[in-house]
Amino acid sequence: MSKHHPPKLADADLSKRLAKHEYFSQLAEFQAQLTLIQQAFLFHGIKGVLVFEGWDAAGKGGTIRRISQALDPRSFKVWPIGAPRNYYLNRHYLLRFWERLPPDGAISAFDRSWYGRVLVERLEKFTPEERWRAAYREISDFERMLVDDGTRLVKLFFHISPEEQMKRFSERLRNPLKRWKLTYEDFRNRERWADAEVAVEEMLSRTSTETAPWYVIPANNKKYARIKAMRAIVDVFSKDMDLNPQHLDQRTLDAASQALELDRALIDGLRARTE
């Protein structure tokens, strides 16, 4: 097995773009795949976890929305992660994430995640250095336990340039329907871009493993980023997975045969698939 090489921000080609017609064609294809994956997860009891990290305005939310369109909300949950409330401040930082992990058959998406420990908490000095540095090992152990328990894990970092971020801030300011997304913290965080870049690079280097690799998504073009992210998710979630529609059991078919006016050949054909 080849040695895993953690990605770097510089590896992401921010010039990548996707034409509108290609985007909508691939979007429909990947959404259809996600629907099949969710059905297979439910049937086989597989769990999935998605981690979305990235710069402010990098397109995490837009990608999550396109994924949500394909999935039944009864077994797909999005967790927007902000500052912890006092209950969690007095406990281990991983507790609130343990509590939000999916049950068998379900998928959970974290919009921001446990990586706040080595990003926000590091940059804002909310946590002593020896504790956030210990988090590299703690997080890798945590993710290894998830994967060993049968959870499929995909970690995505959405990377944009500072110039593109400013364009998106301006768009949010001008658009009344997007203005709610813009906060003082967005501009404050920009002043720490260089420091944040160092923290991100170290995070990628220390926590991208064979078991739980990072995917850096070039996101200057939103359409390209969404498709790139969805392709990574589909690849990991569908690996060695039978995505064919699951067969009905004989008891259900017996009930359907009695209750519904169906072509006999249809029922017989479905019966044959269960044998």
Rank of each mutant, 00 (worst) to 15 (best):
M1K: 13
H4V: 09
H5N: 01
P7R: 15
D13Y: 06
L14H: 02
K16V: 02
L18D: 01
E22P: 13
Q31R: 09
Q31V: 07
T35P: 04
L36I: 01
A40D: 00
F41I: 03
K47W: 04
G48I: 03
A57R: 08
A57N: 08
A58H: 01
K60D: 00
A70G: 04
R74H: 07
R74G: 05
K77H: 13
K77Y: 10
V78F: 05
Y88V: 07
L89T: 11
P103W: 11
A106P: 06
S108Q: 03
A109K: 05
F110K: 13
R112G: 07
W114R: 05
Y115H: 15
G116P: 00
V120Y: 02
L123T: 02
T127F: 03
R131K: 13
E138C: 12
D141Q: 14
R144C: 10
G150N: 09
L153M: 03
K155I: 12
K155W: 09
L156C: 07
F157Y: 15
F157T: 09
I160T: 05
E163V: 00
K167I: 14
S170L: 07
R172D: 06
R172T: 11
R174Q: 11
N175Y: 15
W180D: 01
W180C: 04
R192F: 07
W193H: 12
A196K: 02
A196L: 04
L204H: 10
S205Y: 11
R206Y: 04
T209A: 06
E210N: 07
W214H: 08
P218K: 14
K222E: 12
K223T: 00
K228V: 01
K228G: 00
V234D: 12
V236S: 07
K239G: 08
M241I: 09
L253P: 04
A256R: 11
A259I: 06
L260W: 02
L260V: 02
A265C: 04
I267H: 06
D268L: 14
G269L: 15
L270H: 00
R273I: 02
R273N: 05
